[in-house]
């Protein structure tokens, strides 16, 4: 289905699973960039791990021929997002300008409907006030809100970086260039497994890679129209 180009940008991520080594550099970078507190071991055991990116690990085969497969999962920035219509206060809303799902923290009243309706389980609820072990409280990113208790949060594709780059381009009176915006995860990925850009910019790296023969989307049959494209990994594609 050909997508109609509308106003703004269509921010898109490509995850090349052939290149992902499961190193979690993206997870660490995301925590640092987005003021995400680190959960304690106890909270993780209770299922309250609050990473905006999680690396799902799958074992394949029987010993001794065992292989590990990794699947980084973060907010899929759905075009038809299940989290949006269920929010009673419009805190989870669709940005027409950026074509992203945005969580407006100061609107959120913490019903958690959005998190329960998300098929990807990528929304995180703040059960307590955020805590940063010293000296981590001194490295908080001033461009990102520190979310208080009772607020739902999730991956934003580093909206603060998108906005900063757009504002800079606007001040300089030029269009935004491909590669100018890089979310923290993309910037930190050592194997270049994550590729980010505007799909509506024909010359962007992302637009040139779509469609790809290895391409698939997570739970595509649900009709959520994710903005994250995964490229299959595995032997059949090695060295491609």
């Amino acid at each position: 289905m050909a997508e109609e180009r509308q106003q703004g940008h269509k921010w898109t991520m490509i995850v090349d699973l052939d290149k992902c080594t499961g190193c979690q550099a993206c997870v660490v970078a995301c925590h640092a960039e987005n003021n995400v507190p680190s959960p304690s071991e106890d909270e993780i055991i209770r299922g309250r791990a609050n990473h905006w990116i999680r690396i799902e690990r799958y074992w394949e085969g029987e010993y001794p021929n065992v292989k590990a497969r990794f699947l980084p999962v973060f907010c899929q920035q759905c075009g038809n997002a299940p989290c949006e219509p269920v929010c009673p206060v419009y805190a989870s809303y669709h940005s027409v300008e950026e074509n992203l799902n945005v969580q407006v923290y100061n609107r959120c009243v913490g019903t958690r409907y959005c998190g329960n309706n998300c098929p990807y389980r990528v929304r995180i609820f703040n059960f307590w006030a955020p805590h940063f072990d010293p000296p981590l409280e001194q490295q908080l990113n001033p461009d990102v809100t520190v979310r208080g208790p009772g607020v739902m949060e999730k991956c934003t594709f580093c909206i603060q970086r998108i906005r900063r780059a757009r504002e800079q381009a606007n001040v300089e009176g030029r269009p935004l260039e491909d590669g100018e915006v890089q979310p923290a995860c993309v910037q930190s990925c050592p194997t270049d497994a994550l590729i980010f850009g505007d799909k509506w910019d024909e010359n962007s790296r992302v637009a040139k890679m779509i469609p790809h023969e290895r391409q698939f989307k997570l739970l595509e049959h649900l009709g959520t129209e994710p903005a994250v494209y995964y490229l299959k990994g595995g032997e059949t594609h090695v060295g491609e």
């Binding site: 950026e98 100061n106 461009d143 809100t145």
Partner: peptide
């Protein structure tokens, strides 16, 4: 105004 009406313009 449509672009300036977006929540992400001010809230991140």
């Amino acid at each position: 105004k449509d672009a300036l009406w977006d929540c992400t313009v001010c809230h991140r």
